[in-house]
Computed example of a mutant assay.
Amino acid sequence: LYKDYTHVVMQKSCPFDIHNFSGWCVVTSTFYSQYLNNVTNRLIKTEVVEGEENTVLLKDVYYKGYDLKLKFNTKNPLEPKVEMDDQIAGETGEAFGTIYGDGKLRISQPSIYTSYYNTCQNYVLQYVSMSVDNKDGSSFGTVGTFISMFEWISDAEAEKLKEQGL
């Protein structure tokens, strides 16, 4: 069948530990570059959500006071996906300078893009869609689809970044 050669593909997978995805995290997002003036990265805190398996809480990801929950799907180590329920990411007044629709900036995970995590390098690559609804629940409009990179770092690295003004 293969004659005198073969093609082998190897994939490295490290053991999953939810605690590797808690603590300090550097966030880079295309949303920041479009809607937050002069912001390219943010340093945020994350913590494991007690009572919810393989779930972390990302604090103040887009706007202060709006935390997001992210769930790690560990069923298949070769398909390390992250999932997120629809949530509120902020207020339209803060995001756009005026209130649109019901005033809430909604965030969801689009089905056409795969968001995933890496256990060897402790990062998450997540696609999100943002939208605004009217007060009656109908759609006011779509803001866009954005990609965010979450990279977990040590306390020492976080201290250096804070000293540098991040």
Rank of each mutant, 00 (worst) to 15 (best):
L57Q: 08
T142Q: 11
A89L: 11
G93Q: 12
S139K: 12
V56K: 00
I153F: 06
V27C: 07
C120H: 06
T92L: 13
S13Q: 15
K12S: 10
Y123D: 09
T55S: 08
E157I: 03
I153W: 08
H19W: 01
V124F: 00
V143R: 11
Y123F: 14
H7R: 13
V132S: 11
E83F: 12
Y117C: 03
E52R: 10
S33I: 15
W24P: 03
K45F: 00
Q109V: 04
V27F: 10
L58W: 04
M10H: 12
Y66W: 07
M130T: 14
E94V: 14
S154R: 06
Y35H: 15
N76S: 08
T30N: 08
S22N: 04
K75R: 05
H19D: 13
F146G: 08
V27Y: 05
C25E: 03
G23E: 11
T114P: 05
Y32R: 07
V132E: 06
Y63S: 02
N20Q: 14
V49A: 02
L68H: 02
Q34F: 09
D85R: 10
S29W: 11
K71I: 02
V82G: 07
L68C: 01
T114V: 09
T6V: 11
V124M: 00
V132D: 08
V27K: 10
P80M: 11
Y100W: 14
T145S: 15
V128M: 06
K75I: 05
V124C: 01
N134W: 00
K75Q: 08
G101S: 10
K160F: 03
G144E: 10
N41C: 03
E159Y: 01
I44Q: 02
L70S: 06
Y100N: 09
K81R: 15
G97W: 14
V143M: 11
K64L: 02
Y113G: 03
S138L: 05
L78P: 00
N37V: 14
D133A: 12
I18D: 07
T6A: 12
T92G: 15
L68P: 01
S138C: 10
Y117R: 01
L78K: 05
N20P: 05
V61C: 13
S131D: 12
V128G: 00
D155E: 13
M149A: 09
V48F: 01
S131N: 10
Q109H: 07
N134P: 04
L105P: 03
Y123I: 04
Q34H: 09
P77G: 06
Y127V: 04
T98V: 14
V26T: 06
H19I: 01
D155G: 03
G141Q: 11
D155T: 15
N76L: 02
Q121W: 09
T6N: 13
E79W: 05
Y66A: 01
T74R: 04
Y100Q: 14
E91V: 14
M130S: 05
D85Q: 10
V128P: 00
V39D: 09
Y35L: 12
L43I: 01
R42V: 00
A89W: 11
Y35M: 05
V49M: 05
D155K: 13
I18H: 03
N76P: 02
Y117A: 06
Q164K: 12
M130N: 07
